[in-house]
Write a protein that binds this DNA or RNA. Structure first.
Lengths: 175, 175
DNA sequence: CTCGGGTAGTTGCAGATGCAACCATACCCC
DNA sequence: GGGGTATGGTTGCATCTGCAACTACCCGAG
């Protein structure tokens, strides 16, 4: 997650007139509407969460995500590339993010003794405390901004649908 | 939309152990799963679409979105701030985006004669052609990556759910 | 007229991103 | 052992982002 929400939007409807052939053949209007709703919902929610988290904890959403991954990992540590995959950011992006987290004293980076290529990113006690401090407000914000719009069963349905979409787009690691 | 997809992820589950009090009170597990699915789906889809669009048309997703807004507007033009709102990017972001689109000859920026503060961003014939060239492949990609995962009725349901979430987070213009 | 407040856009700035090229290490095979 | 190749990370680079400060302009009050 970026510290800043991604600018997002797309109006794909009503292009038929422009595109000569009807756009509905290229993109079903039903899908177009869903796509726009998807982008809009994402943009609004992440924008709000991002600034709230930054204000209350001085931590970017990306920071939070990375730390959350470490929190739930064995011994609070993960290899750089595992972490990059888990946090859905590029390897280079993670390198720099860990740099910054390390400056804060929230994470350490140590070379693995068994495989010199590997580096472990480890959450420090200080980092854990920072995370604990930030999590309640952030989770509450997610609950409010994202969770409160739907009932539990709707939410489960939504999850299934989103997972189908995610599965359609599974792919290997990035650079 | 950014040219690059936003790094996105968040594992909010299984934090109870760490957070002393049970995290499920802060964020229902059902919501947490949905949230993660949401971020994952978004990240994967936009990442793929972004690079495909760039490869096939040399245009970023943000460019496409901005041009799409102009295409569907009266006289292919919009005031800067209207456009920024519609494309969900900041005013400063739009200023620079229009700079670049103008360099390509895809858009012009002209001061409004009636109100000197206002500037109109107008899609040029060249820009329209570029958009027409890019749209089919992009729309097809959206259909494939996003649209093909669900049935039409599921898609409509998804739209309703997403709009509820978006509505919960409606807010004014950004800087 | 002109002063003050409000609106539309732009610019300075600091930070973040990914890709591709580049090291460093590990591993495999002759 | 000595190459050749694959893997894990980091760095150079160009680009993008938003916020806050700033300029340009409009408009109403006096």
């Amino acid at each position: 997650m970026a510290t800043t929400s991604k600018p997002v939007s797309a109006e794909i409807e009503a292009l038929s007139a422009v595109l000569g052939t009807d756009a509905s053949k290229l993109l079903d209007p039903t899908v177009a509407k869903a796509w726009i709703a998807f982008l809009t919902a994402y943009g609004r929610v992440t924008r709000a969460l991002s600034s709230e988290l930054m204000d209350t904890s001085g931590m970017s959403l990306a920071d939070f995500d990375v730390m959350a991954q470490l929190v739930r990992s064995e011994d609070y540590r993960l290899r750089m590339s595992e972490l990059a995959d888990a946090a859905l950011i590029s390897k280079s992006g993670l390198t720099r993010r860990i740099d910054r987290l390390a400056i804060n004293g929230w994470v350490t980076r140590r070379r693995c003794t068994e495989d010199g290529r590997v580096h472990w990113a480890t959450l420090t006690p200080l980092g854990l405390r920072a995370f604990k401090g930030a999590a309640p407000a952030h989770l509450a914000a997610v609950a409010e901004r994202f969770g409160s719009a739907l009932t539990a069963s709707e939410m489960e349905r939504l999850t299934r649908d989103l997972l189908k979409i995610a599965a359609k787009n599974a792919e290997p690691t990035n650079s």
